[in-house]
Amino acid sequence: MAYEDLLRRHQDAALRTAALLTRDADEAEDAVQEAFVKAHAALPRFRTGSPFRPWILRIVANEARNRRRSAERRAGVALRLAEDRRGDDAAPSPEAAVLVHERRAALLEALGRLREDDRLVLGYRFFLDLGEAETAEALGIPRGTVKSRQSRALERLRLALGGGGQP
């Protein structure tokens, strides 16, 4: 598979990862593009047979971290709630839709108050559906550490949801 095709396959996950860290759409895009270029230079260090997604996400996350300071000054919004466009019977009633939206908005707001390591582990696990092994690879930590880090992140998310100040 050509490198460009390989990148395109992971572009959305890369953008989400960068958005989680930079919280700015422009910075997220720049980080992803830069990471894709840097990843090419790093390909000789990629272990054949290993999953590509966590490897590229790790490079994206590093690049996004390097850019987050300037992005935070702009306080932009990189991840937003999409409209529920279901028009069939599965669509919730207007009242239920409001409640669902409120719940998601509260979660998103609380998530934004977490430190980046917490945002990243929760984002990998539940937004990108990475398994524990892939999450460990993407975070550059031992697999056995993922569970404990995820558990602590969930606990701090609860604190953030409960309005308990800086989690």
Binding site: D12, L15, R16, A19, A25, A28, A78, L79, R80, L81, A82, D84, V100, R104, L107, L108, L111, L122, G123, R125, F126, F127, L128, D129
Partner: peptide, 10 residues
């Protein structure tokens, strides 16, 4: 969180 992830867009 999984539900939130599905509802997010960039």
């Amino acid at each position: 969180l999984r539900d939130l992830g599905r509802s997010l867009e960039t």
